[in-house]
Design a protein around this nucleic acid. Sequence first.
DNA 1: CGTCATTCAATTGTGCACAATAGAGTCGTG
DNA 2: CACGACTCTATTGTGCACAATTGAATGACG
Lengths: 146, 146
Amino acid sequence: MSIDPLDLEAQICFPLHAASRAVTQAYGELLSESGLTYPQYLVMLVLWQAEQPLTVGELGERLRSDSGTLTPVLKRLEGSGRVARRRSTEDERKVLVSATPEGLRLREELKPVPQKLASLTGLGPDELEQLKGLLGRIMESIDLRS
Amino acid sequence: MSIDPLDLEAQICFPLHAASRAVTQAYGELLSESGLTYPQYLVMLVLWQAEQPLTVGELGERLRSDSGTLTPVLKRLEGSGRVARRRSTEDERKVLVSATPEGLRLREELKPVPQKLASLTGLGPDELEQLKGLLGRIMESIDLRS
DNA sequence: CGTCATTCAATTGTGCACAATAGAGTCGTG
DNA sequence: CACGACTCTATTGTGCACAATTGAATGACG
């Protein structure tokens, strides 16, 4: 009696999908007070680390996301005053995105988020590293295919 | 010199989110010929295993999804002839969902999908089990919080 | 029997993912 | 300079996720 390979749990798809949604939701609760959504938080993480304004393309590269997804997210962040967008003067195709002072202030406010979430997962540091390693290998393997 | 806890990769959020999207996309390519999207495939997986028609609530329980997400997915599956929906006669609040013959035929057509995807991840069986284990523990831990 | 809380699915509204396309701007080549 | 290929962002359209609300149906209780 072998396991049905079409079983919902037998494939990697469902656990990965469900866990991702659950974690997104958990972040959402931690972020709700700041008014950020989870994908908006990811954008801010990148901007907080950047020394200079980034183009939409550079943001997309780091977040593995394209302009069709990023543009509306950036517009909402601009609307809530967390981000500034301006056309590059030297190449007017490019749009430079940077955190506003209000956006930078959020960085302090949200400092405890990573630790809170790590504890919510119920996994230890070693296990989190192991998980990140496995996910990273999947990303690599799928990327190679193209 | 410690790692910045706000680094994009240092938190579990981004690797999990990105890997989930990448795997969803990979399934999408494997499923494109059948005309199913990835969430529609998840619904079919559950229906293929069910001996009887399931209510929307039962589907949502297995897929950890609510009617706001499921109803439009089911309507599209109904529109493409893969699924039948009818009100229960004994409790008219319930909608019973079942696979049509065409929906059952897809099961045969899509049998090679799990194996193909497993190989796309580049992980061995042991590692996939390990990954599912870690993801399962996260789900449990987050569920307990409620 | 009538009332009321509960159970269900559907609907509404907001936001994200992504493919395809459009359209402005840039650059190399002749 | 003129032309064509390329780069880059924005837009459009489809589909999913999820919170909140609606409204019908059920069932328990007095």
